[in-house]
C-alpha cells in the first residue's frame, strides 16, 4: 500500500517512486525518456499550455498598445521619439532584473510577469508597425484619395494591407522573444516551462530541466516556423517582390 501512496503527483517527491524508479532516474542520467513520457501529461503539458497562454497574452496586449502608439506616431510625428526611447529603455533592461524590480511594485504574480513581458514586445512591434505604415508608396495613397476613399478606408484598405509584411515580421520576433523571456518569468511565479527548469535545477534532477529546456526550445522554433508560414500566406506578394 505504501508504494501506492508515493506517486509522481504534483508536489510529490522530485525523484518519485523511490525504489521503483528505473536505473536511469536513480542514477540521474542526462535524460530519461521513459520518465519524461510517463510524466509528460502531468508535469509538462500544463506548463507548456501555460507558457503558450502567457506568450499569447503578452504579444496580444503588446500589439494593441504598440499598434495604437504607431498609429498616433504616424499622424503626430512628434510622438515617435519619446515612445521609442521609452520602449528602447525597457528593451535593454535585463529580464531577471526587470522582473525582480517589478515584484517590489506589483508583487509575485502573473500580472507582474505580464507587465514586464508586454514592455519587452513594445519596441519591436512599434518600430515594425510604424516602418510598415511609412513605407506605403505615395502613389498608392494618392490613388486611394483620387478614388474618394475616406481617411479610415485608406487606412484599412490600403495602408494596413501594404504594411502587413513588416508588421507580421514584428509579431514573429516579438513572439519568439516572449517565449524566451517567459521561461525566466517562472522565477517570479508566473508558471510556464521555466517552472520545471528552476525546479529541476534546484533539486538536481537532470531529466526534468533538460526536458523542459528542450520543450521551450521546440516551442520557440515551432512558433517561429508557424509564423513564417502565416506571414507567407497573408502576404503572398511580398515573396514575389523579393525574388524579382
Amino acid at each position: 500500500m505504501i508504494s501506492g501512496l508515493i506517486t509522481p503527483a504534483a508536489g510529490g517527491p522530485v525523484i518519485p517512486t523511490f525504489g521503483k524508479s528505473s536505473t536511469c532516474v536513480v542514477q540521474n542520467h542526462q535524460f530519461c525518456m521513459s520518465w519524461f513520457l510517463d510524466n509528460f501529461s502531468s508535469r509538462f503539458q500544463p506548463r507548456l499550455l501555460e507558457h503558450i497562454e502567457l506568450t499569447a497574452i503578452a504579444v496580444g496586449v503588446g500589439m494593441v498598445i504598440a499598434f495604437a502608439a504607431a498609429l498616433l506616431a504616424h499622424t503626430q510625428s512628434w510622438f515617435e521619439t519619446p515612445f521609442s526611447l521609452l520602449a528602447a529603455f525597457f528593451y535593454t533592461i535585463p529580464a531577471l532584473a526587470f522582473f525582480e524590480v517589478m515584484v517590489q511594485v506589483t508583487g509575485i504574480n502573473r500580472l507582474t510577469a505580464e507587465i514586464a513581458l508586454v514592455s519587452y514586445t513594445l519596441l519591436i512591434l512599434f518600430r515594425n508597425t510604424l516602418t510598415g505604415l511609412r513605407a506605403v508608396p505615395d502613389d498608392a495613397l494618392q490613388a486611394a484619395e483620387a478614388m474618394g476613399l475616406t481617411r479610415r478606408q485608406t487606412l484599412t484598405r490600403v495602408e494596413l494591407p501594404l504594411a502587413l509584411p513588416p508588421i507580421m515580421a514584428g509579431i514573429r520576433i516579438a513572439t519568439v522573444t516572449t517565449i524566451s523571456l517567459t521561461t525566466v518569468a517562472a522565477y517570479i511565479g508566473a508558471g510556464g516551462l521555466g517552472e520545471p527548469i528552476f525546479d529541476g535545477i534546484q533539486t538536481g534532477f537532470k531529466t526534468e530541466f533538460v526536458a523542459a529546456g528542450f520543450l521551450a526550445v521546440a516551442l520557440a522554433l515551432v512558433a517561429d516556423g508557424l509564423l513564417v508560414i502565416v506571414q507567407r500566406l497573408l502576404t503572398p506578394w511580398a515573396r514575389r517582390v523579393r525574388r524579382a
Binding site: 521561461t183 522554433l221 512558433a223 517561429d224
Partner: peptide
Amino acid sequence: SNIGRALPSLAVISIAIGI
C-alpha cells in the same frame, strides 16, 4: 541568427547544465 534569436536562453542554459 533567426534560430539563435528564437532559442530561449534559460532553456539553453538548462540543457547545457545537463550535458
